[in-house]
Design a protein around this nucleic acid. Structure first.
Length: 523
RNA sequence: GCUCCGAUAGUGUAGUCCGGCCAAUCAUAUUGCCCUCUCGAGGCAAUGACCAGGGUUCGAAUCCCUGUCGGAGCACCA
């Protein structure tokens, strides 16, 4: 072996090829087939990789939630597996489900590029949870506890059992039935899983499995239930019953697996493989990436909706013309490590640019922002064009001459961004038209000789005919920008992706009578 | 207070399990050049990282210990 190690790698490879070609093949295949995501553990053990995405339908997805869809969907493709969407809607009060969110989430998932094989709702399955609770009580795995929350918490910290822990299974069972029948008030009594009250990790000690909630569930089918399971119980039972082989979820549920194992042990079930990922952050939005704070701002009218470009949501980036595939690629590139990660939107934009550049027809947009705002053009200014041709004819797409050229009339003058206005007496190249010299109140046409551009003698700028310019409202994550585009933008279909040259890509969102709304994607 | 987890360039990631092929991969970002009638696309190049300190070893990003920093849980939220 040491002799082999002293040999140089090239020779070693040749040697290995001679001795054991199949081993070499395996070695090299290993190195090359690095998929978008790391391999799931122990996939050989099961006939089929079955996973579940378990969103709480208390709102549409933000970019962090989207990671769930992107990663699970991609894994399903990698393994030709089975994807269950299970709505964990078992809290009608604190994290009250939003009836519109069920479909919104499925739409968000579809946008990311994935269809679930199965869709279920926890709130349809209460009877199943009750049955397993009864079985667990009878097996000695759970007991009804009437301790006030504070009091139990103290005992738990001290590692001491409460009096209720010794109750007989029969007594606990009858109390549980009364809970199911709605005979207890919230806070009066709960069902606890009997784990190990002295467990060195206090997070695992006798956790609550069921509690009473008087607020009716928003779904009519579940509105009569008062006794609701907690996530760890519900999710644990469902994972087993639906044959989940791999759980992939956030780091906040790290201890869940350990808690649920106690239940699994009572039932003699085998716990699925688990992968936990860290939190996703993104610094590019002012709105925090949390369902509740986005919801607050939408309700307060600070945001126009979940798809407001300022919101870090799936609906927002979709409306801006970012393909779901771009988001999925960027999100899966984050991997599944347990450390926290920053999602950089530039990664999403880079993926998207790659996907849409070919399809996006070119247009000019002259932004008409306040004077001095040089970043956004500095305001539109109008100039007559003297002694020039009738029209400018920039291509629809520089790499696709076959898509034709735009015909932009110049006889009524042109609009340019004041940032692009050359000093008096200086020249500038109006893209698709030619070189003009600025004569304080006009542009005097000089030449159509492209060598001026090629030699770098004049800078090239975009412009818009002053004749019937199309008003545009460009909606960006940093706020709205007004401007003027060439008239024909009026004819673009809603949903079309465009590139405003030297400004950036966007998606035509609406065609009003006198203006077009475009959502800005990225540069 | 108790328990668990993590740390590779601005960002993400590969490599860590099984130490040597790693003066560390790829993408993105930034910058420069080429090309292009866009600040887009395309091409080329440059920039930039193993949290710190000890230990083991001929050899440590990789193994061990300590520390630092960060995250999570200890809810009748998910």
């Amino acid at each position: 072996m040491s002799e082999v190690n002293r040999t140089d790698p090239g020779k070693r490879r040749a040697r290995l090829e001679a001795v054991a070609p199949e081993a070499l093949e395996a070695l090299e295949a290993d190195a090359e087939e690095t998929g978008p995501l790391p391999e799931l553990p122990n996939v050989e053990a099961d006939d089929e990789v079955r996973m579940r995405a378990a969103p709480n339908p208390n709102g549409p997805w933000h970019l962090g939630n989207a990671r769930m869809g992107a990663v699970l969907g991609t894994y399903r493709e990698m393994y030709d597996g089975h994807l269950i969407v299970r709505f964990d809607d078992t809290d009608p009060e604190t994290k009250r489900p939003d009836l519109d969110a069920y479909d919104a989430i499925l739409r968000d998932l579809a946008y990311l590029g994935f269809e679930p094989d199965t869709v279920i709702r926890a709130s349809d399955r209460l009877e199943t949870y009750y049955e397993h609770a009864r079985e667990l009580i009878e097996a000695g795995g759970a007991y009804a506890c009437a301790c006030p929350q504070e009091q139990f918490s103290e005992l738990k910290r001290a590692g001491e059992a409460c009096d209720h822990r010794d109750r007989s299974a029969a007594e606990s069972l009858s109390i549980f039935e009364a809970m199911v029948d709605g005979e207890y008030d919230p806070g009066e009594t709960v069902l606890r899983v009997r784990t190990d009250i002295e467990h060195r990790n206090p997070a695992l000690r006798d956790w609550v499995a069921f509690r009473t909630i008087d607020t009716p569930h928003p779904r009519e089918a579940a509105a009569d239930y008062r006794c609701w399971p907690m996530l760890d119980f519900q999710s644990g039972v469902d994972d087993h019953l639906t044959g989940v082989t791999h759980i992939v979820r956030g780091i906040d549920l790290q201890d869940s697996a350990k808690r649920q194992r106690f239940v699994y042990d009572y039932f003699d079930w085998e716990y699925p493989e688990v992968v936990h990922w860290g939190h996703v952050r993104t610094e590019e939005y002012d709105v925090p990436m949390s369902t509740s704070s986005i919801k607050e701002r939408v309700d307060a009218g600070d945001l126009d909706g979940w798809d407001d470009p300022r919101a870090p949501t799936v609906a927002s980036v979709r409306r801006r013309g970012i393909r779901g595939e771009a988001l999925t690629r960027a999100l899966t590139a984050l991997g599944t490590s347990t450390s926290n990660v920053d999602l950089s939107m530039s990664a999403v934009y880079a993926e998207n640019r790659d996907l849409i550049d070919d399809a996006a027809d070119r247009h000019f947009l002259v932004r008409d922002t306040a004077e001095g705002d040089a970043e956004d053009g500095g305001g539109a200014v109008e100039r007559r064009v003297v002694d020039g041709p009738e029209t400018g004819t920039p291509p629809v797409h520089p790499e696709h001459e076959e898509r034709g050229r735009r015909e932009l009339p110049v006889s009524d003058g042109v609009l340019v961004e004041s940032r692009d206005l050359p000093a008096n007496g200086e020249r500038v190249w109006l893209k698709g038209l030619g070189c003009v010299r600025h004569t304080s109140d006009a542009f005097r046409f000089e030449s159509r000789d492209l060598d001026l551009v090629r030699d770098g003698e004049v800078s090239v700028v975009h412009w818009v005919p002053a004749d019937r310019p199309r008003r545009v409202r460009l909606r960006t994550p940093d706020g709205d920008v007004e401007g003027y585009a060439e008239t024909t933008l009026r004819d673009d279909a809603v949903g079309d992706l465009v590139q405003f040259e030297r400004v950036g890509y966007g998606r035509v969102d609406a065609q009003a009578e006198d203006h077009t709304v475009v959502y800005y994607a990225h540069r």
